[in-house]
Design a protein around this nucleic acid. Structure first.
Length: 649
RNA sequence: GCCGAUGUAGCUCAGGGGUAGAGCACUUCCUUGGUAAGGAAGGGGUCAUGAGUUCAACUCUCAUCAUCGGCUCCA
């Protein structure tokens, strides 16, 4: 008989089972404890339901909670559970899609005419889900024909589902049912709703059906679930901690930046400490750029509209920009500059160039103005006025790849200094099916895309590829860093461009004494000062590196009797460029320590009778505690040592 | 721009159709102290803005502005 099948495990061991055994039963045959911990299985490389029978020899990997595959199945089943709850609470609710996401799941629903789901409904949904989960309903997979699926969802009046089905291929359609709820779904799912022990319905949002802003706005309901209450509790604590790192909150607490509706939304105001820090970043970057052969330039904040017509920006974005600026001169029109590249092209054009002087690396901390949609503004990460650490490399075609690679090096260097150890690199290519979105010839696009892919490959950079994410004039390599709650923000970007050199008629004289067109690379490392500072705040929770932080040390006299000595120490430190304050408030030392710890000042210098007598300071490191007593000169050496470790020399 | 929510003191927030509340911060006084909150007193609000309903609106309605969570967008 062929009723025995051989299952191979990841460690290479093989066990024999009866044909038709499920992965769940296999897990149980190993141990009941394991069976309780697994939520999905990979069978012959395909992600499967635990409850799906295995019909032949197979390789098997069981996925416990820590595997993303397990979470995916768990949260996907949870989305179905939420849908079941919604249907039970509000019959007639129409369902869109309900996938698992990085942290939990959502379901897009249309509650029907006149019905609005609000925040106050969330606990109702949560309670209903708990009730349904406790019913121990098995989740059952069935394969159906396209016709059957159509009939089922047409009868239900689920027009969103029928739209999805109409695009599926017959023979590949599966349904999953638990209790009275059936959903169109590829799976995989949990065997049973009973593993869903801890449930939190998190939030509501609007979301366009199929991501198309011309189509209906669905109600998106986000939730998260866990197999144990403890895991949910830990998750909620983590979210709460992350909120404390929000740069908008810390920026206010530490008096780094502010917004004023009177100035205008999305227009950041840098307060003294923030401006000071921003300038320090600029100074540091300027020094690094000069070492790497960049020259600094400076351009106005406006440009004639013809400049942007030449570049192609006006045609692409003119309608959605700040309105053009008119002048007393009839017909004369300027625009706030939304980017620096056209100005830089004209700088290149201002002087003749020989092949010998390429590459030209032209850098500017250029402030640009973009009319971002009101709903898109977000603290310092998305604003309407921001300063890019912008630069353009004009090079010969044979220099392109080396230039590109040198910029990858620079990004890695700066990110290392910023402490961004986990960033992602994304190669953004054009969508080959959407020619209207881009300018330039296919040939140039292919050359540019190839150059990026090769350069990233030669640098052994781990990259993801995003089709359709390119800039309209060229493909790019983007470097993204996460914020406190896991959202990714693009900081560094490197973009290859054959188009602007053509449009601006850029040229250099080659060794053959002929005119040639240079290739242009657009790049930013910080991305923008605003976004970089925001992400830096969230990654450090406001505990900036010593070299960068606005105030490096604060002197805490134990009583007013020691204020005179405090001033002496202050002078010594300030003369050695240690940015130092005195906290001479009439407060006890414990209070002063607490307040200054909360300000995230790296060093607290306690002075009292002993220190005055010995000519020393008692050093306390923020977040770490007492470092002992030392002379001011030793403290200076300590701080300089920190800075040296952080940014070298 | 779209969907939903929010807006009360510098900050975090409570309150409620009939003269505005707390904690922290701030000011003054007492205290002069040894590594994360000493004590007391005091000042501070057009309850986002504008209109409407009402004898009476900070509270109810509408609009506007801003903010938050998403969606779309992101040169």
């Amino acid at each position: 008989m062929e009723s025995i099948i051989r299952i191979t495990f990841p460690d290479g061991s093989v066990r024999e089972y009866n044909k038709g055994i499920t992965s769940y039963e296999v897990a149980r045959s190993i141990s009941p404890g394991l069976a309780a911990d697994v939520f999905a299985a990979t069978v012959n490389g395909e992600l499967w339901d635990l409850a799906r029978p295995v019909q032949g020899d197979a390789t098997l990997r069981l996925h416990k909670w820590d595997d993303p595959e397990a979470k995916h199945a768990f949260w996907h089943s949870s989305a179905h559970l939420m849908a079941e709850a919604l249907e039970s609470l509000w019959p007639g609710t129409k369902f869109g899609i309900g996938p698992a996401v990085e942290n939990g799941f959502y379901y897009d629903v249309d509650p029907g005419e006149g019905k609005v789901i609000t925040d106050s409904d969330l606990p109702l949904i949560e309670d209903k889900m708990k009730e349904l989960a406790a019913r121990n309903s098995p989740i059952i997979r069935t394969e159906v024909s396209k016709k059957e699926a159509m009939e089922l969802f047409t009868a239900k009046g689920d027009e969103y589902k029928t739209e999805l089905i109409s695009e599926l291929e017959d023979g590949t359609i599966t349904l999953y049912r638990q209790g009275n709820f059936t959903d169109l779904c590829r799976g995989p799912h949990l065997p049973n709703t009973s593993s869903i022990k801890a449930i939190k319905v998190l939030s509501l949002a609007g979301a366009y059906w199929r991501g198309d802003e011309k189509r209906k706005m669905m109600t998106r309901i986000y939730g998260i679930t866990f197999p144990k209450q403890k895991l949910l509790d830990e998750y909620m604590v983590m979210i709460e901690e992350a909120r404390k790192r929000d740069h908008r909150r810390i920026g206010k607490d530490l008096e780094l930046f502010a917004f004023s509706p009177r100035v205008g939304m999305g227009l950041p105001l840098w307060l003294p400490k923030g401006a000071d820090m921003k300038q320090r970043l600029i100074d540091f970057m300027t020094k690094v750029l000069k070492e790497r052969g960049y020259t600094m330039v400076s351009t106005p904040h406006i440009g004639n509209v013809d400049l942007y017509k030449t570049s192609g920006h006006f045609e692409k974005y003119g309608a959605d920009s700040f309105r053009p600026i008119t002048t007393p001169q009839e017909g004369e029109v300027f625009m706030l500059k939304p980017m620096n590249c056209p100005h830089h092209c004209e700088i290149f054009n201002a002087t003749p160039h020989s092949y010998r002087e390429l590459p030209v690396r032209m850098a500017e901390f250029g402030t640009v103005y973009r009319y971002e949609q009101s709903g898109e503004l977000h603290g310092l990460t998305r604003v309407r006025s921001f300063t890019q650490d912008d630069a353009h490399h004009f090079c010969r075609p044979d220099q392109l790849k080396e230039e590109f690679k040198s910029i990858i090096d620079l990004v890695q260097y700066i990110f290392k200094i910023a402490g961004f150890s986990e960033f992602t690199a994304q190669i953004s290519l054009r969508d080959p099916n959407n020619h209207e979105k881009y300018i330039g010839s296919d040939e140039n696009w292919e050359k540019a895309e190839q150059a990026i892919i090769e350069a990233a490959g030669e640098k052994n950079l781990a990259t993801t590829i995003a089709i359709g994410e390119a800039a309209f004039y060229g493909p790019k390599l983007d470097f993204m860093v996460r914020d406190a709650i896991g959202r990714k923000w693009q900081l560094g970007t490197i973009q290859v461009d054959y188009n602007l050199p053509e449009r601006f008629g850029l040229e250099y004289t080659g060794s053959d004494n002929q005119k040639h067109q240079p290739v242009m690379i657009h790049r930013a490392i910080f991305g923008s000062m605003e976004r970089f500072v925001a992400v830096l705040i969230e990654n450090t929770a406001g505990r900036f590196p010593v070299w960068l932080t606005p105030d490096q040390a604060v002197i805490l006299p134990i009583s007013e009797k020691f204020n005179e000595y405090a001033k002496t120490v202050l002078n010594i430190l300030n003369n050695s460029d240690i940015r130092t304050l005195i906290d001479d408030r009439n407060e006890k030392i414990g209070k002063k320590i607490r307040d200054n710890e909360l300000k995230r000042i790296p060093y607290l210098l306690v002075i009292g009778e002993k220190e005055v007598g010995a000519g020393t300071v008692s050093v306390r490191k923020q977040g770490e505690g007492d470092r002992g007593v030392m002379k001011p000169e030793e403290f200076i050496t300590l701080v300089k040592g920190d800075i040296n470790r952080e940014i070298g020399n």
